[in-house]
């Protein structure tokens, strides 16, 4: 069905705003994800103890913490619709593309919030340091977008399944390995003091990953949503 772009934007914002309002009221996803992130960080810091780690290890631990936080909360957007029985109403009212984009925006907001809390805590707890703030922020941003690009559709798939929580990470991990390998490589170089020039290939890869995964999601989402 043809949707004019102004209508699509308005509908996307409507889906997004509804989710944010709902989230603001009961903080269902936010509290779980934040607590999960802080627990993971504390465990990492606790097990490292004194002394500092090599940049590669630090980068891996950082993304493991964010990966598990994402796994804890990013499926909430769709699971909540199915569990509260509101999916049907939304299906009748809104265009699938608008629903997908609204949920993607919501997940981006949620994961950005987590990242804003986790990153400073991570630097404090592990004694990591970098003077390449700009490059670090860009990698972080591409990482958050990539994580959401891949997991939003998986969240929609598992909302139709019987065992939701475990299945979400089982389905997401194989798709995310490609992303995580690039993110760890780029973050390790940045923590090692390299700037944009040293991570150009990874940045291109990260960008391409998000574009491909969002495009694929937009094409496939209506098949999931219709069921």
């Amino acid at each position: 069905m043809p949707v004019n772009s102004a209508g699509l934007v308005a509908k996307t914002i409507a889906v997004y705003a509804k989710d944010v309002r709902l989230e603001f009221r009961n903080r269902y996803a936010t509290s779980v994800v934040l607590m999960f992130a802080i627990t993971t960080l504390a465990m990492i810091s606790f097990s490292i103890g004194q002394g500092s780690l090599a940049p590669r290890l630090l980068a891996a631990l950082f993304w493991i913490a964010l990966f598990f936080s994402a796994m804890a909360g990013l499926s909430a957007a769709f699971v909540r619709e199915e569990e509260s029985g509101t999916a049907l109403a939304l299906r009748l009212k809104a265009d699938p593309t608008a629903v997908y984009l609204g949920k993607l925006l919501f997940n981006l907001t949620l994961l950005s919030l987590v990242t804003v809390v986790v990153t400073p805590l991570f630097f404090v707890m592990t004694d990591a340091a970098t003077d390449q703030i700009g490059a670090f922020v860009v990698v972080l941003l591409l990482g958050v977008i990539g994580l959401c690009a891949a997991t939003t559709l998986v969240g929609a798939i598992i909302s139709k399944a019987a065992v939701k929580g475990a299945l979400f990470s089982v389905l997401s991990f194989p798709i995310l390995i490609t992303l995580l390998l690039m993110l760890v490589a780029a973050t390790a170089r940045v923590l090692d003091g390299q700037s944009f020039g040293g991570i150009l290939m990874e940045l291109q890869g990260l960008f391409a990953y998000s574009v491909v995964m969002i495009t694929a999601s937009l094409m496939l989402f209506r098949f999931v949503w219709r069921e």
């Binding site: 598992i158 139709k160 390995i177 995964m213 694929a216 999931v224």
Partner: peptide
């Protein structure tokens, strides 16, 4: 993961659609 998904979705058509979407989505990465 594909077979875990098939095991977890009930209803023939829904299972077929979900696993087809996953199969396609996992291909590019």
């Amino acid at each position: 993961a594909y077979f875990s998904l098939r095991g977890a979705v009930t209803g023939d058509e829904r299972r077929a659609a979900m696993s087809a979407v996953y199969s396609i989505f996992a291909f590019p990465p």
